[in-house]
Amino acid sequence: MTELHFTDVQRDCLQELVNVAMGQASDKLARYLGTFVHLQVPSIALVEAALLSQHFSSRYQQQSATLVSLGFFGDQGLRGETIMLYQLANAGVIAQLLGYSDDAVSEAEMLTDISSVLTTTFLSGLAEQLENSFSYAAPRILSSRDQYFADKLAYTAEQWQLALQVDIRYQLTDYSFNCDMILLIPGEAVLRLRQTLDNILADF
């Protein structure tokens, strides 16, 4: 069994790497949306993948959500999948801003585009700091306006062991836009990640 525990120092290190990668992703998003993004300290949590859907079904209670998934593959066994979860309250406003037409198909297309901008920028930033490089699968929508998204999340998550849960709250200048990003990685990638963090920490 893989021991998923991270020490406080490893956690702080990972939090800072996430912070830097988030800054790059937010800059890209701000340019893409033509607006300013208020950055907050991303809160990260490492949880067992099996417990994920439980957490999110209570958090998104009585709301439909869209899930967009992106697989990534790096060197030395560092690989995984990111999932972006969007609450749809503001999707219409953003669609208008970006010039997508106001229907479900365009909304899906828009969220796929935004996810692609956010996750590839975020992951590239993270990979660079880990002295790795990732390649990506095409983003795919796991569910849209689906009451049963928790089941789909559970199904996806059960293929992985560790979930790095990153809460992202993007407050745009004129409206709020919340999404959650989840990084799912397998056990051997956890070991690799921890070792890389230790190498970084040994330098300082």
Binding site: M22, G23, D27, A30
Partner: peptide
């Protein structure tokens, strides 16, 4: 010294 590199910031 920041990760928030948006030009406006």
């Amino acid at each position: 010294v920041s990760a928030d590199i948006q030009p406006e910031m």
